[in-house]
Amino acid sequence: MHILLIEDDLDLGQALLQALQLDGFTVQWLRSVAATPPVPDTNEIAAVLLDLTLPDGQGMALLRHWRRAGLAVPVIVITARTALQDRLDGLDAGADDYVLKPFHVPELLSRLHAVLRRSARQACEEWTLGTLRIAPRRHEAWQGDALLALSPREFRLLVELAREPGTVVAKNVLAQRLEPLGDALDAATLEVHISNLRKKIGAQRVVTVRGVGYRLQP
């Protein structure tokens, strides 16, 4: 899954980038309000980690603007502002969670997975879709009790489809999400991965909506 990290501090940004990558996320790191797109592309981003104090503006204003523009992606605020009012303001402005510096990285990662799970409308860390179970943090998936042998890219494809169960994910969106930092996957390669995934979890599970994209059938 792809995370947008907005943090102005050079050292902290670098450290978080590595910590997130070690946990299997792909990360885009930005350092100022000016560098941030007016509204992040939801097709690419699964969640945002947002520092509130930025050199050229306030993260809070950015967050309010996004929410007004209809951005539904989960946002975790990371800040050194400890006052209760700041925390309340942050949550009221549309933050899904509020993490105080200095934080424990495992806690930050757990919170990140929690907001991702909630946005995928799952009740626990093991996402359940019919007989299919996915554990995104452990990079494991089961069909019934059988552990599925998925390649990293197949696993990410499954998670991206599972994040919005029942809805159709457009082909180009899926292609971009699988390759968030580079050029989108070409259509043929995507088709190959879809076909491989179908072989492992059952063809009827991934429904092709002609001309639009794919849908994961619970």
Partner: peptide, 10 residues
């Protein structure tokens, strides 16, 4: 807080 967060993360 920020340098402490850097230490914890690193």
């Amino acid at each position: 807080r920020t340098p402490m967060a850097v230490i914890a993360t690193q």
